[in-house]
């Protein structure tokens, strides 16, 4: 772990975007997540790390209620987005997901044109009044995802024809197009080669200017490279949460230390 470069970053934001208190998740009888408390800051990259099956992805999917699509999943506790409980019965998960966008592990562009992939979100949420506005959103989103230059000449081509890294950036553009406040990323680089990974990581750093980004990653190096805050999960518990630099250089919990130094994982 000596080659790890930990960028000293200022975390001057103190505004809480998401507040989670006492979150429990059950899949059927399996207690997958136990009593998680966490505060996720605005305009910050927060990384969730931990060994496979530790509950980090589960927790991520709680934040935009993607767990609702799994029939056996049950969530208890409170998760507040800007002070509003997202598990309140009055909340429409559909509306929530427009605010809390998500990028998945495997790039999953729809089998439609690049343009239609990006325009999909704005169309269903009624964000535009005419074609010109839609065109504008599509271009802006593709620029933000740093893929505009590569695809601007073939917006009508199918999204599935792009390379893996391009597909993932297209999915990020698609998520950005709905104008979300939080972006959740579930191991976004695990299916990509090193060059594509570097491009996506760079992009994540840029996205921090506007969004609160939460990223689940298997790679500690990646967490160290892109995040300001890191949470370490182990066996369904949130073991430790703090500044990325501090977690990696001076962990408080022995379990974190074991993981960082490669003894468990």
């Amino acid at each position: 772990m000596n080659d790890m470069r930990i960028v000293e970053r200022d975390v001057d934001i103190t505004e809480n975007k998401i507040t989670a208190r006492g979150v429990q998740v059950y899949y059927g009888t399996n207690h997958a997540l136990k009593d998680v408390d966490v505060d996720i800051l605005d305009k910050t990259v927060t990384a969730f790390i931990g060994p496979s099956g530790c509950g980090k992805s589960t927790f991520l999917r709680c934040l935009n209620r993607m767990n609702d699509t799994v029939a056996s999943a049950r969530v208890e506790g409170k998760i507040l987005l800007e002070g509003e409980d997202i598990y309140d019965p009055k909340v429409d998960p559909v509306q929530l997901r427009a605010k809390v966008g998500m990028v998945f592990q495997k790039p999953n562009p729809f089998p439609k044109s690049i343009y239609d992939n990006v325009a999909y979100g704005p169309k269903i949420h009624g964000l535009t009044r005419n074609k010109a506005e839609l065109d504008e959103i599509v271009e802006k989103s593709l620029r933000r995802a740093a893929i505009w230059n590569e695809v601007k000449d073939r917006l009508d081509a199918s999204g599935t024809g792009l390379s893996g890294g391009q597909q993932q950036r297209l999915c990020i553009a698609r998520a950005v197009a709905t104008n979300p406040e939080v972006l959740l990323m579930d191991e976004p680089c695990s299916a990509l080669d090193p060059i594509a990974t570097a491009q996506v990581e760079e992009l994540i750093d840029e996205l921090r200017a506007e969004y609160s980004v939460v990223i689940v990653t298997h790679s500690m190096q990646q967490a160290a490279r892109v995040s300001q805050k890191t949470a370490f999960f182990h066996l369904g518990h949130l073991v430790e949460y703090g500044e990325t630099g501090q977690i990696f250089t001076n962990p408080q919990d022995p379990r974190t230390e074991s993981y960082i130094t490669g003894r468990i994982g």
């Binding site: 998500m102 495997k106 562009p109």
Partner: peptide, 17 residues
């Protein structure tokens, strides 16, 4: 593939959409 549906739900689409 389920990932198609996840992608769409993740963007805030309803089931019928």
């Amino acid at each position: 593939p389920q990932s198609m549906r996840d992608g769409s739900y993740g963007l805030g689409a309803t089931k019928s959409e």
